[in-house]
């Protein structure tokens, strides 16, 4: 089965919960296990939070786009912002690295996305926004 969706929302922290719920509702048609669904919610939350805090520096009137694609048991989640971009992606992906230590951030966002999904790709450039693509194969464990 093939299916696609796209949602656009303002870069408000309220929408972190919305994005998680929308992602979980869309992925539910794949009959994922409870843990798989929880993994997707967590990874989406990290990506959307990064877009809001880092991409848009908490500016509330910008737009975050989340696209999802289902191909049988394969799920793709793409979270995109048109914000400031990341200068050094390899550094940003390192565990515990944070560009905003004053915000009491753990620096674990990308590490969590990597651990909870099967693959993570980050495309970014200064002033060019960031696109995070995550893939996960649904194995229906603990359904």
């Amino acid at each position: 089965m093939h299916n696609e969706m796209e949602v656009r929302f303002l870069s408000l922290s309220q929408n972190e919960g919305f994005a998680r719920a929308a992602a979980a509702a869309f992925a539910a048609q794949m009959n994922p296990g409870i843990e798989e669904l929880s993994d997707i919610r967590t990874a989406v939350s990290e990506a959307v939070t990064n877009a809001i805090i880092h991409g848009y520096d908490q500016n509330p009137d910008r737009v975050v786009t989340m696209q999802m694609e289902i191909d049988d048991d394969d799920l793709v989640v793409i979270v995109r912002d048109d914000g400031c971009g990341i200068g050094d992606v390899a550094l940003a992906r390192k565990p515990f690295f944070t560009s905003k230590p004053e915000l009491e951030r753990s620096g674990m966002g990308f590490s969590v996305m990597e651990a909870f999904m099967d693959s993570l790709d980050v495309q970014s450039g200064l002033g060019k926004g960031t696109t995070v693509t995550m893939r996960k194969r649904i194995r229906h464990a603990n359904r």
Partner: peptide, 13 residues
């Protein structure tokens, strides 16, 4: 019902 790395930041703080 939900916690991500932002929660970890709160606990570490």
């Amino acid at each position: 019902s939900f916690m991500d790395s932002a929660g970890l930041g709160v606990i570490l703080g």
